[in-house]
């Protein structure tokens, strides 16, 4: 049975810095079946309407990672996004280059910063010459150990997560979700001998700059779930080194506050995060908040139902015996 066609209005960002001229959106109209991937639509435009439309693409099966772009403001793989639902939801399809990477031409972006962040993770097995790999045979690794990689081996480095990440936009020191998911992949690898060193280093190399917004996990076309792996890295970093950084001290203090009273003690949390001297610099900000919300200076009460919270903590993270 022939499928119904839809009329696709596709507005594509165009800019060739070499040719001069301001960036613009160019509208193309095509009749296509609704399941047509956006990439196929763009290639039809190249073949039939404008061969100068410039984009990266290769495999058309979501494995090479070339064709990530903004599709109706979301970072997606063009090959894996059908046009039908986009048109149903937005009435048209707006195609723009990925964010957080400089433009080269049309939809092609400069990925230098993305790859540099990846390189900073030392993305290779670090082995100890004193503990060599088994001679002439594979390292033993159980299916349960392979399970520890979670979905990180599926990463195709498409940079959709990097494009979607507000922390990347805010701070160049943040390596981005893909790089951290790659780091996780090496931290959990039983063959790697640099686990401790990797965890210690990343505490000062951007781990705590993650804003926990989970936009990377939403953007990832391969379900790698970078934000969950970043959370794992934070836990592992604290376990490996304790609260040596603002971020980790904040996390530890937050957890402790809730356990004790069921709500935050903001004054205490600032002290826990920044220490006494560090907190002095925040006194002005604290004073402003206090004027609007004087109750923050009071030590918060234990909330009603705190017993339930204690039970949750006890189930997830039992206190050592002596503490009970």
């Amino acid at each position: 049975m022939p499928e119904e066609m839809v009329t696709a209005q596709i507005d594509v960002f165009r800019h060739d810095p070499a040719g001069g001229g301001a960036p613009r959106y160019q509208r193309f109209t095509l009749e296509l079946p609704p399941h047509t991937p956006v990439l196929t639509a763009l290639l039809r435009i190249r073949a039939e309407q404008d061969p100068s439309l410039t984009l990266r693409y290769s495999c058309r099966s979501a494995i090479c990672g070339s064709c990530a772009m903004q599709i109706n403001s979301k970072s997606r793989l063009a090959c894996q996004t059908p046009i039908g639902p986009e048109i149903a939801e937005h009435g048209r399809i707006v195609i723009e280059p990925m964010r957080n990477q400089g433009g080269v031409r049309d939809l092609v972006v400069d990925q230098t910063s993305f790859w540099e962040a990846y390189d900073r993770m030392r993305p290779h097995l670090i082995t100890d010459p004193l503990r060599p790999m088994p001679e002439g045979r594979e390292t033993s690794m159980t299916p349960a150990q392979v399970e520890q990689f979670r979905e990180t081996p599926r990463c195709i480095a498409c940079a959709a997560c990097y494009s979607a990440c507000p922390a990347v936009e805010a701070d160049a020191a943040f390596p981005g979700p893909m790089a951290l998911a790659k780091l996780y992949r090496f931290v959990v690898d039983p063959r790697d001998q640099a686990r401790q060193d990797r965890l210690v280093r990343i505490q000062t190399e951007g781990l705590w700059l993650c804003l926990r917004c989970h936009l990377c996990t939403e953007a990832c076309p391969k379900d790698v779930r970078p934000s969950e792996r970043i959370r794992d890295l934070k836990e592992m970093a604290i376990a490996a080194q304790g609260g040596t950084e603002r971020g980790s001290r904040h996390a530890i203090g937050f957890k402790q506050n809730i356990r004790e009273r069921g709500q935050l003690n903001e004054m205490k949390l600032v002290l826990q995060t920044d220490g006494i001297l560090g907190s002095v610099g925040q006194a002005g900000q604290g004073f402003k908040i206090w004027r609007k919300k004087p109750e923050i200076s009071k030590k918060p009460r234990r909330i009603e139902g705190i017993e339930e919270i204690e039970q949750i903590y006890e189930a997830l993270d039992p206190k050592p015996k002596g503490d009970r």
Partner: peptide, 17 residues
Amino acid sequence: VEMEHYGTIFSRAEDGS
């Protein structure tokens, strides 16, 4: 084996091979 030593994450049998 060389590719395994370089870091390839292969699927494994229960005995670790």
